[in-house]
Design a protein around this nucleic acid. Structure first.
Length: 543
DNA sequence: ACGAAATAG
DNA sequence: CGTTCTATTTCGT
């Protein structure tokens, strides 16, 4: 069995395979944060950008600048790489006449002996420095954290990411000069031209298809007589770049239009020429949103929706506690915890399963729809039990949002639900030092929060984490919960009403004759719908 | 501010 | 190439 294999295929090959539904990403998140922090510790600029759980961009321009100036031109093969400014004792020895393996083009790990060196000596030495730094980082990562890694070294995010795909796993690749086209083609052009158009980061499915359509359907127009056989299917960057009249303007015509990113033509033209001016972002302390979602084979009744909303809300609140709640060092504080950020908005998204077509087929759609509103402040309360907060959130926010999304009482069938808190407002903090959070505290928190409802927690060595995903058991709430039942009362029993205006059943408004009134879960007041957000803000100020 | 779309791991 | 559970950025309104 292979990763990403479809379950049907897996069952055919191995009928006895045990499929465990769900996943527990907490440990991946923790590992990701630790490695991210570790790497940030090596930068001087703080420019470390995380892409997913297992990739980072590092801008080490300043470190390379410094060490370039430090080089002794008379004895390059016995150089010392300083990891810190003004500290000649911290660093490592290296041979500045050689690239640390590997390099693209391959077989050119001694760039000074090849024509590429004389072309741009300054860039060559800088890439040599980068390659040795990368090697040192990979070694440190393995020795100190127990993770192997793969690195790409070049002059921008695009090229370093692409060149990092060579020599996987546990290797590194430096894209050698020349980077400028002259009498000979630059390595940038040679390298990037080999790629399928859709493999370029920033060119996803939609844009790739539109470019392919342009490149593949037009050849018929000029000199078709020379083209035989099956139509070429794959379109490389070279095919696009060399297509007649190709340039930023044509690309803008192909890709522009309503909804498209502004200047998309120029941006894509830059990408296929290896040009990428985007900065490596500085480390962020806070994510900008936290979301939880689950997919379903069939979700079409309100009691089930309520159940799932509770599950999702429970996970979300726990995530908020883990990521946004920190131990308060202030002994005078009433609570030993404090929120380091307050999300201000909650969003509910669903993915409705499209109805069957006339011919019985189902047009697959992955389109999501969403509604959002203010996140009530009671979610930051720490006195009530978590189930109480969850239930209040479900009733006060999620159910109303759900009704906005799906006004019909039935007839829908959802394949996915997602709850997201966003719009994070950082809470005032005493630490002006700009220091990040203490990771050890984070772990303590995570353990404390999750211990009581962890079902199984195997010991998995770090290297095995990636492959062990399928056997990590999803944690689930332990038992029925009285507080929740208590809160819901009979509210989870739904009586279809015969609202016959257009033959489709609509949700009853909260009060039949009190049109547009909502009941506040905090104070039971009946509030006009338009005033409800303001009313919730009122409660949020009480605390 | 909100909702959709595109992209990515 | 498509799926799942995330997360970010950008556009139009």
């Amino acid at each position: 069995l292979k990763k990403l294999q479809l379950i049907n295929e897996a069952r055919k090959i191995c009928p006895d395979v045990v499929i465990v539904l769900g996943e527990e990403l907490g440990r991946f998140r923790d590992a990701s944060k630790i490695l991210y922090k570790f790497l940030e510790g090596f930068t001087w600029s703080g420019k470390v950008e995380r892409l997913g759980f297992d990739e980072v961009f590092m801008d080490v321009t300043d470190i390379v600048d410094y060490n370039q100036a430090l080089l002794n031109q008379n004895d390059l093969s016995h150089s010392f790489f300083q990891l810190r400014q003004h500290d000649p004792t911290t660093g490592f020895e290296f041979d500045a006449t050689r690239i640390a393996p590997h390099a693209y083009p391959s077989g050119d790990s001694q760039p000074w002996s090849s024509p590429s060196a004389t072309q741009d000596p300054a860039l060559t030495i800088r890439l040599i420095l980068g390659s040795h730094f990368a090697q040192y980082l990979r070694l440190s990562l393995e020795e100190e954290k127990g993770y192997t890694s793969t690195v790409g070294i070049s002059t921008n995010k695009l090229l370093s990411k692409l060149v990092g795909n060579l020599n996987k796993p546990k290797g590194q690749t430096t894209l050698l000069p020349p980077y400028e086209n002259s009498s000979i083609e630059s390595n940038v052009t040679t390298f990037i031209d080999e790629h399928d158009i859709g493999k370029i980061p920033g060119i996803g499915n939609k844009i790739a298809q539109r470019i392919r359509n342009h490149v593949l359907s037009r050849p018929a127009e000029f000199d078709m007589g020379l083209i035989y056989g099956p139509t070429k299917e794959s379109v490389s960057v070279r095919d696009v770049r060399l297509f007649p009249d190709m340039g930023p303007e044509i690309l803008e015509k192909i890709l522009g239009g309503p909804g498209a990113e502004r200047g998309i033509g120029g941006k894509i033209w830059d990408l296929i020429n290896g040009v990428d001016d985007t900065e490596v972002q500085k480390m962020k302390k806070m994510p900008s949103q936290i979301s939880i979602e689950d997919s379903y084979v069939r979700l079409d009744t309100m009691p089930e929706v309520l159940k799932e909303l509770r599950m999702l809300a429970m996970s979300l609140i726990k995530r908020m506690h883990i990521d946004l709640l920190e131990d308060d060092d202030d002994p005078d504080a009433e609570s030993p915890k404090r929120w380091i950020a307050h999300p201000k908005t909650v969003r509910l998204s669903t993915r409705p399963r499209p109805p069957l077509n006339a011919d019985g087929t189902r047009t697959r759609s992955f389109n999501r729809i969403s509604r959002s509103g203010p996140l009530p402040n009671f979610v930051f309360g720490l006195k009530d039990g978590i189930d109480v907060v969850v239930e209040k959130l479900v009733q006060a926010s999620l159910v109303p949002l759900f009704r906005q999304l799906h006004p019909q009482q039935s007839g829908w069938n959802l394949s996915l639900m997602n709850i997201c808190v966003t719009n994070l407002a950082e809470t005032a903090s005493e630490d002006g030092s700009g220091k990040g959070r203490d990771i050890s505290k984070m772990f303590k928190r995570q353990e404390t929060v999750l211990r009581e409802w962890r079902v199984e927690d195997r010991d998995i060595p770090p290297d095995a984490l990636k492959e062990e995903l399928q056997v990590v058991i999803k944690a689930e709430p332990s038992a029925g919960n009285e507080a929740v039942d208590d809160f819901i009362g009979s509210e989870d029993v739904f009586f279809p009403t015969q609202n016959t205006i257009d033959g489709s059943e609509q949700w009853e408004d909260d009060g039949e004759d009190e049109e547009g009134l909502e009941t506040c879960v905090e104070c039971d007041a009946r509030i006009p719908a338009f005033a409800f957000p303001a009313h919730q803000r009122f409660h949020s100020l009480e605390e």
